[in-house]
């Protein structure tokens, strides 16, 4: 998958592209806003990682022009300006996500995955958490290579949790993703599905942790002991 990295700090850009290339992405790196604007008009990318402070043309301007041209590819804004205003401006101008510098590589990877999944789905991809894997083609879960028997809703809920493994997912979000616009469903239904999922994952290395008043978190359980 081809990514455009727009970042004017050479060293940061070098190591980032090196890591992302190692992850299997094809990374084009540009350090100038004007050049980035050109490249976005000529080349086709799956995603842009965009720094806001750039020579040539401000990152927000690159973003504005991109969206003005009607291009819908996902943009992950990365900036050292941590003020919330920038964040709001960036999101208003069509950024899909926002990451404050300095960030950890794992965090960047997680955001990239989430963004790419949101725009491209799991087509052809396999999602793996511990020994659990999700086949995006036939949309089914496997544990240690064996198919995991799950109901449609259990599978949908686990898909959301696995897609954000190691990060909290709010109960409201789960409810929306699993039940969509369905009427007459009690929000507590999420708890029931989690209860059933836990039973089915009892003998695995995965744990669904309840976050009181917040939601749930799926993680590989051998860390905590």
């Amino acid at each position: 998958m081809r990514l455009l990295l727009v970042e004017d700090n050479h060293e940061l850009a070098r190591w980032l592209s090196s890591s992302l290339t190692g992850d299997g992405y094809a990374v084009d790196w540009l350090g100038d806003g004007q050049q980035a604007d050109q490249a976005l008009q000529q080349e086709s990318y799956a995603l842009v990682i965009l720094d806001l402070s750039l020579p040539g043309q401000d990152g927000l301007e690159v973003l504005r022009r991109l969206r003005a041209r009607g291009q819908t590819l996902p943009v992950l804004v990365v900036t050292a300006r941590t003020e919330l205003d920038d964040r709001v401006t960036g999101l208003n101008m069509g950024a899909d996500d926002y990451l404050a510098k300095p960030f950890e590589l794992d965090e960047l990877r997680a955001r990239l995955h989430a963004l790419l999944r949101r725009t491209q789905g799991y087509a052809g991809q396999t999602l793996t958490v511990g020994n659990l894997s999700f086949d995006g083609v036939n949309r089914s879960f496997y544990y240690g290579g064996e198919p995991l028997p799950l109901s449609k809703r259990e599978s949908a809920l686990l898909e959301v949790l696995a897609g954000r493994a190691g990060r909290a997912v709010s109960k409201e979000y789960l409810f929306e993703q699993v039940f969509g616009m369905e009427d007459d469903v009690n929000p507590e239904a999420v708890e029931l599905i989690v209860f059933r999922l836990r039973k089915k994952l009892k003998d695995t290395d995965l744990t669904i942790t309840t976050l009181r008043g917040l939601g749930y978190l799926l993680d590989v359980s051998n860390q905590g002991g």
Binding site: R212, G213, L217, D219
Partner: peptide
């Protein structure tokens, strides 16, 4: 919450 779960701390929110 991720940091809390990693440390096996029950982090809760009461709105």
């Amino acid at each position: 919450s991720a940091a809390a779960v990693a440390k096996r701390i029950d982090l809760g929110f009461e709105e």
